[in-house]
Simulated assay, not measured.
Amino acid sequence: MEKPHLLIVDGMALLFRSFFASAAMKQYIRLDDGTPTNGVQGFARHVLTAQNLMKPTHVAVCWDMGMHTFRNDLFEGYKANRPAPPEEMLPQFDMAKDVSEIIGWKNFGISGLEADDLIGSMIEKWKGDANITVISGDRDLLQLLNPATTLAFTKKGYMEYDTYTEQRFREEYGITPKQFAEVKAFMGDASDGYPGVKGIGPKTALQLIQTYHSIDGVLAALDELKPAQRMKINENVEMLKLSHQLATINCDAAIEAELNELVMPTFNETVVAQLENRGLRLITRHARSLGL
């Protein structure tokens, strides 16, 4: 019997991507009352296209629930340098979740966790029961790859993805997916606001893990490193370990659902009516163009 195919959507990643792609051209697609909907309509169209392209049997949409997470408790500077969302985007966060519910996609979000943590926890929960595809733009998720999981990174428009399997990752990086968080710990992440080891970039970070397999392995072999590398690491050991905590996706979150609750919904006339009553006609037109 063929396994179910679960599509996990990084909702916030698609919402932001859709918003900025159209906001750059001032295309906010406002409702009659002036509320912008460009991010929401782009998000829904993106997922509908993926549904048509990838033919999943089940779907889940994961969301961040506010800016503060357990990582901010670990490190005050975590994501502190990110600008606030544009004013036109603010009403679209709740609207996107509402649209997801109308269409029948089940939303997931837990206060204090990021969407990445929910995605990781879903993969951990269902990797033995389903083939899983994750849609996102966040390469931090590479650490979640396993034989049952494929990552589809947004690339261009609604149709093009840069797709990673565990095999492709191992061939390109020469490490296991779980070791990717240790690479991130050394190189840091400017977008997320943690420095890693200052002076060690992506290439050196990867080489260190390829050679010594882990942070502990590197620390145990410091005498083998070049003096400059040894000094940089010695000066930043605590930040290195903290950066590893920040880079590691939590896969232990409680997912309060069973797989059979995530069956792909039918885009029927009731859904069409609800969306069009809210002025979201671009979504329904797009669904019809896909034959849904």
Rank of each mutant, 00 (worst) to 15 (best):
M95S: 01
M95V: 01
A96R: 10
K97V: 12
K97F: 05
K97S: 05
D98L: 15
D98W: 14
V99I: 11
V99K: 10
S100T: 11
I102D: 04
I102H: 03
I102K: 07
I102N: 14
I102F: 15
G104H: 06
G104V: 07
G104Y: 03
G104C: 00
G104K: 02
W105V: 08
K106F: 00
K106W: 06
K106V: 05
K106L: 01
N107R: 06
N107S: 04
F108V: 08
F108M: 02
G109C: 02
I110F: 10
S111M: 15
L113T: 07
A115G: 09
A115H: 03
A115N: 02
A115P: 06
A115D: 00
A115E: 03
D117Y: 08
L118T: 01
I119R: 02
I119P: 11
I119D: 08
G120K: 12
M122K: 03
I123N: 09
I123P: 00
I123E: 01
E124V: 13
E124K: 10
K125I: 05
W126V: 05
K127E: 01
G128R: 08
G128Y: 09
D129R: 06
D129E: 06
D129I: 14
A130E: 08
A130M: 03
N131V: 15
I132N: 07
I132V: 12
T133K: 12
T133Q: 12
V134H: 01
V134L: 04
V134I: 02
I135W: 09
I135Y: 10
S136F: 00
G137E: 02
G137P: 00
R139K: 15
R139W: 07
D140Y: 09
L141P: 15
L142S: 02
L145G: 09
L145M: 05
N146C: 10
P147V: 08
A148E: 09
A148R: 10
A148M: 05
A148N: 09
T150C: 09
T150P: 08
T150E: 15
A152K: 10
F153G: 14
K156H: 08
Y158K: 13
Y158A: 07
M159D: 10
E160R: 01
E160D: 11
E160L: 05
Y161P: 10
Y161T: 12
Y161H: 12
Y161I: 10
D162M: 01
D162E: 13
D162L: 13
T163I: 15
T163V: 15
Y164I: 03
T165S: 04
T165C: 08
T165W: 01
E166D: 09
E166Q: 11
Q167V: 12
F169Y: 04
F169I: 00
F169G: 00
F169T: 03
E171Q: 14
E171R: 02
E171I: 06
E171D: 09
E172S: 11
Y173N: 06
Y173C: 04
Y173V: 02
G174H: 11
G174E: 12
I175D: 02
I175K: 00
K178P: 13
Q179F: 01
F180D: 11
F180L: 13
F180Q: 08
A181L: 13
A181Y: 07
V183W: 07
